[in-house]
Amino acid sequence: MEKRQITVPLMADLAAQGETPEILFWVGCAGAFDDRYKRVTRAFVRILEHVGVKYAVLGMEESCTGDPAKRAGNEFLFQMQAATNIATLNGYGIKKVVTACPHCFNTIKNEYPALGGEYEVLHHSSFLQQLINEGRVKVEGGESYKGRRITFHDSCYLGRANDIYEAPRAVLEALDADLVEMKRSKANGLCCGAGGAQMWKEPEPGKKDVNIERTEEALATLDGNAAALASLYGVESGNQGATPAPKANSQGSIIAVGCPFCMTMMSDGVKNKERENNVQVFDLAELVASAEGLNA
């Protein structure tokens, strides 16, 4: 198949030409620096290029939204970051922001308005859902996920924080995969352990790391391992849900995520459980780009 090189449009260049993009793609620090999440950024840009939406990124003008500082209690640093970013965004007259990071999404959408930054903000799961609904992405022509077992791990800052539960599931349903739900999902979802600035510090002493607990749940759900689920939930389980049928061959099961920190935590968990050979962790954008056959 033919491939073409992408020159990612920078906002500064567009502005110099007097153009305005339809969306500003907010890459986020993980999307820009974390090797694993850079692949998600690149997958999402492939989708943007493929559908021909007019987009731009800030490139080196982008700076941390301040989310980890704010959750850690450093309100001063957060507001400094917010003021800088809002000045940049307002300077370019940005109206619509799309990001693949729920933390950036939550911060820009909910916490920037009080500081003078008002934009329409979308998480990439909602944006991908729109593209699929409009038929601009058909989720075909690439790798087939038909029948593969996938479970979606809700990110706290997408789910409980902003009540977005259906968009990522709608994207996964378009893959025609065998979607199974963990009992602790949606509003009852269990954190991966990285939120609230935990990503940058060692956990407090305890009997287990949060990402291990969550990975065990995801693996047991993918495997349909009722015994493992029972021991995880204990006798007093809050949620009554059915255990998925056991998966005879769990080859190629997938934990789907929509957040760079969840990606790190779940990948580490799968590694810790020595299941990398048959369970992979993918972001929604990666699954869509690969199903659409955009990788080159």
Partner: peptide, 22 residues
């Protein structure tokens, strides 16, 4: 950025990026 990366590397992710030309 919360990690110790150089800000000048922030846009490196876009290097050598290709898309299948459907």
């Amino acid at each position: 950025a919360p990690w110790a990366f150089s800000p000048s590397d922030r846009f490196n992710w876009a290097d050598d990026l290709y898309v299948a030309d459907k």
